[in-house]
Design a binder for these strands. Sequence first.
DNA 1: TGCCAGGATGATG
DNA 2: CATCATCATGGC
Length: 273
Amino acid sequence: METIFYQNLIKIKNLICFDLALTLDCGQAFRWKEDENGCWSGVAFGKFIRILQKDDELCFFGATREDFYGIWLPYFDLERDYERLCEGFCEDISMKEAVTSYPGIRILHQEPWEALCSFIISQNNNIPRIKGIIERLCQSFGEKLPCGEYTFPTAQRLSELSVEELATIRAGFRAKYILDAAKKTACGEVKLDLLSSMPIEQARQELLKIKGVGNKVAECTLLYGCGRMEAFPEDVWVKRVMAELYPQGLPACVGENRGIAQQYLFHWRRNKN
DNA sequence: TGCCAGGATGATG
DNA sequence: CATCATCATGGC
């Protein structure tokens, strides 16, 4: 890939194994919106960005060079060799079908707190409603940026709220879980910053301290929020794949990248019904 | 209308 | 240790 810097635009050419729409709307992040021109906009790490993919080019509008390297390159996992990765996956016949059916999915590197909070909200819930709850959460308790969009509220901010004050976002029974996560994160009882470097099992146990966080939410947080590609969140769809195709575990070609394989399997199986 | 949603919890067998 | 109702809301 080749990166070109213009006045107010950063363009990547010759990018392979990358599908912007698929990556932003495959159930790993919930805040991105597509406009009528196919341009995606959203906020991550407190920064607003607009991104357009067309004709083998990826355009970042309104990003500084510093944020491009510091935020967006890692956010979209653009430094990982997905071509080689997916070639390896394709040694297994079912993984090959999943990868070739929906090529270009990348695992986002979101903020740990946003990932944790988002997947607490996701439990026993559907994606349209998850998006609505998170949008109200940000509008109510995030910070307004000049563009009019809101940042994801900090754990510190949410830890000061009561369940009654949180009722406006209509998270239902999950409200108390959000507050417990916010309090334990804000006071340092759960150290989200350390999860990326801890042994994976220890990191999972750390997250299980939070009420409303089970294995699924913990693994989602580690995968999407801590860059732990070996984390393996199992939901109803992935469990179905595992029961039907891999009763004895994932094929060896998946290696340590279980989380990435899981995302392809999830999306593939979910769109089959 | 009834069913389901990228689950977790506490109570029961 | 496995199962099960329940949780609150909206989309279809």
